[in-house]
Design a binder for these strands. Structure first.
Lengths: 207, 207
DNA sequence: ACATGTGAACTGCTTCACAGCG
DNA sequence: CGCTGTGAAGCAGTTCACATGT
């Protein structure tokens, strides 16, 4: 399959959200123009994005909401559920562990780890924090698909490599600081400080 | 000033982080090649990014770490500190309120709001949660620069408009769902579900 | 008539390659 | 000589515009 731009993937994810709303409202048909308006883009962009994966619409009419929903779910890999482990039970890790939004979208947080003995055993929702020493053992039996890294920068690179060695091919990275994805691992980084700095830049350099 | 691409801003923020590390180590000079390696980009890209704002380097030698640090801080608007309020004291809002990374980078969380009476008054670090009914009154006297929205999707658009009307020109948006930035407001969105979906896509469509 | 699907044109970011200067 | 700064070239993503199918 041809390479898909990251911006396209982001938009597909957006469209999927819109379609879920639209479907809940009982609307059965949607045009590229309507999706474009919701997503702040153009109808041509929507059609181009979808056309990368096939022709799902009916000329003169638009797209069937349920059909497009199903197609997009398949494209995004959301026909199945994903097993997520969180590494780091600090403020952010703990908040993520209890965030309901994940399971609603098909991601089940099935384990939380920390290296701090004071935190091990602590309850987070219906999980309890495990010692990260057991991470490799568990990864083998529990088949984690995605690891969320929510630990301090120091030691994070080592941990990322442990994750990769344990056979996990995707990392969601909340580490504040430099982290290089191990080979063959898909990584997405969320860096709060960087987002705030972008706002600082925008405020400082407006018009 | 000419328009700066979002990708460029993200990289400048990265370079800034690297320079802080490098400076802490006592190194005084850095080349575009070294910054490129740290940031996973090319030396030409680094030079191009910096050249958008001036010529800070010395040919044959590289960049003075302290000078480039100062220049970048000025460019990013980080010579001053920014006053941040958080709206929503749920899991994510509470975690953000207590996240030390913000103040380290120049962002002071000075207030947290919630609409739920059960949460109002609760202590978060050395702040206590205020009733969002007082948001407008406080915004006037406390001069918030940036609002972090960490509330459910329902009602978020209204809240964004209250933020804008209160004269705050920047929003960091953690709302899971559609949110349109009010006119003249700079907004950055962090959507965890979208990041996970991008990983799902990558895992499903690899090679 | 209407909205999709898609080559072609366009825009803008990235990479190249080298002149310029310490 | 080495590394920056930068026009020019290359490439990727977006927008245009229209032929196509219903």
């Amino acid at each position: 399959m041809k390479r898909i731009a990251e911006s396209t993937v982001r938009r597909l994810s957006l469209y999927l959200g819109f379609l879920e709303d639209i479907n809940r409202r009982g609307t059965t048909t949607v045009s590229s123009e309507e999706l474009a308006k919701l997503g702040g883009t153009t109808s041509a962009q929507v059609r181009k994005d979808l056309s990368l994966f096939g022709s799902f619409g009916k000329r003169g009419l638009g797209y069937s909401v349920t059909e497009l929903l199903e197609r997009l779910r398949r494209i995004m890999g959301l026909e199945r559920r994903w097993r997520v482990c969180i590494i780091g039970a600090g403020k952010i890790g703990a908040a993520l562990a209890q965030y309901e939004g994940f399971s609603q979208r098909g991601f089940d947080v099935v384990a939380v780890y920390d290296s701090n003995p004071a935190r091990v055993g602590e309850a987070l929702g219906d999980l309890h924090v495990r010692d990260v020493a057991f991470f490799e053992r568990d990864a083998e039996s529990e088949k984690f698909d995605i690891a969320v890294l929510a630990i301090p920068a120091r030691g994070a690179q080592k941990m990322a490599e442990r994750v990769a060695r344990a056979g996990i091919a995707a990392i969601l990275n909340f580490v504040p600081g430099q982290l290089t994805a191990p080979p063959k691992v898909a990584m997405r980084t969320v860096n709060m400080a960087m987002e705030l700095e972008a706002l600082s830049f925008a405020l400082t350099n407006r018009d």
